[in-house]
């Protein structure tokens, strides 16, 4: 294939208005976030065997109770939910379901994301404000 310079003046050209483009980009970004989280998660969990009686681990867990880190947890929930639900949409499309109505399917999936996120947000903010768990 020819190696000619490409016309790049309009990168993404107008398609930023299209649902599919955003769905795909956010899917990639949330996937990257999850990969990095997985590494961090393994690191944190492995601290349990670092010191006597898991002191490092317990101290870390204490630090995670800080409101800012609870908010970061909440951000992680968004990434997981988005990746999971958009993944469902992509699997459905691979099965040939809803290819023509992919935008509707996308917004239904996003509605599920919002609903489930609301539950998590309720739990997190109750904890941040009152310092106690919901149950």
């Amino acid at each position: 294939m020819s190696k000619k310079p490409r016309e790049t003046a309009n990168i993404g050209a107008g398609l930023w208005k299209a649902t599919g483009m955003w769905a795909w980009l956010l899917f990639r970004i949330s996937g990257l976030i999850l990969v990095f989280y997985l590494g961090a998660h393994i690191l944190v969990i492995s601290t349990a065997q670092w010191s006597e009686a898991g002191k490092t681990f317990n101290d870390l867990m204490k630090a995670f109770e800080h409101p800012v880190l609870v908010l970061l947890d909440l951000a992680l929930v968004v990434a997981v939910l988005y990746h999971a639900l958009n993944g469902v949409r992509v699997i459905l499309m691979d099965l040939g379901i809803g290819v023509r109505s992919h935008k509707l399917v996308y917004w239904i999936c996003m509605a599920v994301v919002v609903i489930v996120f609301a539950v998590f947000a309720y739990v997190a903010f109750t904890y941040i404000i009152t310092g106690k768990g919901v149950m």
């Binding site: 398609l15 299209a18 649902t19 599919g20 483009m21 769905a23 795909w24 992509v90 499309m93 691979d94 040939g96 290819v99 023509r100 992919h102």
Partner: peptide, 21 residues
């Protein structure tokens, strides 16, 4: 990757993604 830009762009309003899937 079922990005659907082709469907958005097609001036004949075809659905290439359906065929590819």
């Amino acid at each position: 990757h079922t990005i659907m830009n082709c469907v958005e762009a097609c001036p004949k309003e075809l659905v290439p993604t359906e065929g590819i899937q």
